[in-house]
Design a protein around this nucleic acid. Sequence first.
DNA 1: GACGCCTGAATTGCATGCAATTTGACGGCC
DNA 2: GGCCGTCAAATTGCATGCAATTCAGGCGTC
Lengths: 252, 252
Amino acid sequence: MAPRAASKTAESSDKVGVICRALRRAIIEQALEPGAKLPEDSLGERFGVSRTIARHALGQLAAEGLVELRRNRIAVVATPSWQEARDAFDIRIELERLVVRQLAGKLTKNQIAELTAHVDAEDRARDGSDAVSIRLATEFHILLAHMTNSPILVRYVSEVAYRCCLTLSLYSRPHSSECAINEHRAIIAALVKGDEAKVMGLMHSHLDSVANRALVAPAPQRGRDLLEILAPYAEERDGGRVVKLSKVVRAR
Amino acid sequence: MAPRAASKTAESSDKVGVICRALRRAIIEQALEPGAKLPEDSLGERFGVSRTIARHALGQLAAEGLVELRRNRIAVVATPSWQEARDAFDIRIELERLVVRQLAGKLTKNQIAELTAHVDAEDRARDGSDAVSIRLATEFHILLAHMTNSPILVRYVSEVAYRCCLTLSLYSRPHSSECAINEHRAIIAALVKGDEAKVMGLMHSHLDSVANRALVAPAPQRGRDLLEILAPYAEERDGGRVVKLSKVVRAR
DNA sequence: GACGCCTGAATTGCATGCAATTTGACGGCC
DNA sequence: GGCCGTCAAATTGCATGCAATTCAGGCGTC
């Protein structure tokens, strides 16, 4: 397989690209949880570059929605709201339907082998950490997108898939990505068979079920967004005295 | 209406955002044609900032696909291939179907008024320059996207719409955006009526016809990408002698 | 006359430095 | 004991400087 020459859009300058890829991976594997701080010079030091480069990388990731950039404040890993997560999945469904529509019946033998190999790898990773499973599942979809040979589609699918991955780590209960592997196999089979409508339906229900398994409750379970979670309790009383929020706000 | 606080994803640092917006607008109004050079310090000087900022802005625009960034070379306005243009439209169709699906029957009075006012402005701009007409037509779609209140959708629709706009300037013959105004009115009407299927169909055929009016021939008519255009002729002979391409390459 | 090389000017790649802002912690006050 | 103002440390915002690369034009050669 060709060493997929630096995804072209940006991050071409390599140094920036390396940092972007590393951070993306760290984020989707949850080594960096949503809300984690990303100071420019720590990053620069870690990767052996100056702040200028680290800053540029953060800019790119912010454009992708993985990182939140606040003026004069330390950048943090993004914490998408539940609604944003839902929106991301809606978009993802449409984009990936487009992918499989373009791919149905048009896969080469090599591509089929590559996809199968990937799903096999997913299978083998079942026993490993959840983080790796989730990353592999995401990469399956990105691999599909690559096969369309449409750089734009690749970029959007990748972005939105990463975003979804990030939200999964926020809102889903553990082990929610288990049974996805069979669905991946079914999609490959339908692609090979060339049944456009069928494979679009499969992809739709696959993503829909991933989303539904994950986004059951509108209220986050492991919330970092304390302020938002506690908003309804702001006026709550604690033994007759109004509880001040300042302490909680500090804790943020 | 709230002054829609700086599109949030990036370009928040204002200075970068200002340059991005200015360049985007210049590009879609064709003040900057595809292939136009964008040297960092000229930009910086023009906007009264240092190269650092100009560079950052170029990075953002590159991520959006409006600018091409080649290592150690002057950045240029992107010149999407015909295939990329087609892909962009395909994606755009799906995204905008999603927009109107979410919006059907849910518009407030204010929003309806805003949309109507915008189309009226498009009407008034008919006599003006083509560039302005095209920009307004594009902004109609972005305005719709904003009304979904989904930042992700806004970002993707904006991006892909700008990209399409850029390709229109490359491949379309003049005056191809004329009759779109009535289609915009029809879409508003269907949105108000709340007929989801109808409005999705309308949006689909609207964009499809824009694309088809523009992207009729796979071969660009006003090509800037000389190298690509001339590739088939590379071995062509000119009166018995092989024509060297170096001169043409220089002209790029 | 056209091609190719070679050199100065232009331009980018990146690091660093300084000013401005935020952070968070300490001490005083109610 | 908890709240608020003040101040040093940490951090970002941005400009500038230097090295490396590319670009453009002139010269010599075929």
